[in-house]
């Protein structure tokens, strides 16, 4: 080809530390087929120079698997929270704008602190209570394959935080637990052993920042990269929480 090498134009929102002021820098990366955002950031690492030829540092971001399973590389790309590894350049309008998901505290550049998501899993007791990892000489209960398929759907949640970023009710001024942990609550409550402690999980969602803080904006289900039917499960969970609240009242 006689024409100049095709370039991909990035405008990246940068921030040197949690309390520093954000600024933007522009970069150009050589185009190649099947290029994605993570691969582009890797190219910038090899030669961190801005579009105007100014030497700079490579943007900091988090990534691991590059297969859209680990959840690490979530960032806001052209205004939409998504996994950077699966964001193909061919599908994006240029210039491509990268920004950190500011629902979470920014660590540096595109890297964010999602500790709150893992802490939420403690609050909802996101596990099946087993006596121990030893043998119990007894099989776990059989499960309806359709129920198991639903469990599998929810269990693919990779704690990436797209739903948290998209949710208008998750922000620094709110203590809403957010869609991800609510989906997980439903998951553990539907398990035949997990449901023994269903009440504890439902009670945990009655407190401040619990399920009542969901404003039903339906953004989460649109944002979920795993297409988990979050709103469906949150609605089911909401009914369960209400039932439990009534039960609690009568049992007082």
């Amino acid at each position: 080809m006689a024409e100049a090498k095709k370039k991909v134009h990035f405008i990246i929102e940068r921030q040197d530390g949690p309390n520093s002021k954000p600024y933007t820098e522009e970069f150009e990366v050589d185009y190649r087929p099947a290029l994605n955002v993570v691969a582009s950031l890797m190219e910038i690492q090899k030669n961190p120079v801005t579009k105007d030829g100014k030497k700079t540092t490579a943007p900091v971001w988090e990534c691991n698997c590059l297969e859209k399973v680990c959840g690490a590389c979530m960032m806001v790309i052209n205004g939409k929270a998504q996994q950077a590894c699966a964001a193909l350049i061919d599908h994006l309008e240029q210039p491509i704008r990268l920004a950190p998901a500011r629902t979470f505290p920014v660590i540096r550049d595109l890297a964010i602190d999602r500790t709150v998501m893992f802490e939420n899993l403690k609050r909802i007791q996101g596990w099946v209570k087993v006596d121990g990892s030893w043998e119990v000489h007894n099989d776990a209960p059989r499960q309806n394959p359709r129920t198991a398929a639903t469990a599998y759907e929810i269990s693919r949640c990779m704690t990436c935080g797209c739903c948290m970023e998209a949710c208008p009710n998750v922000n620094s001024g709110s203590d809403f637990i957010g869609p991800a942990a609510l989906g997980q609550t439903h998951l553990f409550n539907m398990h035949p052993i997990g449901e023994y402690f269903k009440e504890d999980r439902l009670n945990a969602l009655m407190d401040k920042g619990g399920i009542a803080s969901c404003g039903n904006s339906q953004n989460c289900v649109e944002a979920c990269p795993k297409e988990i039917k979050l709103t469906t499960y949150i609605a089911k969970l909401n009914r369960e929480v209400n039932k439990q609240a009534l039960k609690n009242m009568f049992n007082k």
Partner: peptide
């Protein structure tokens, strides 16, 4: 069997 008790959503046969 340990993983099954811990709730791993293994793919199941028609009879569960």
């Amino acid at each position: 069997k340990m993983f099954d008790r811990m709730g791993v959503p293994f793919t199941r046969t028609a009879e569960g």
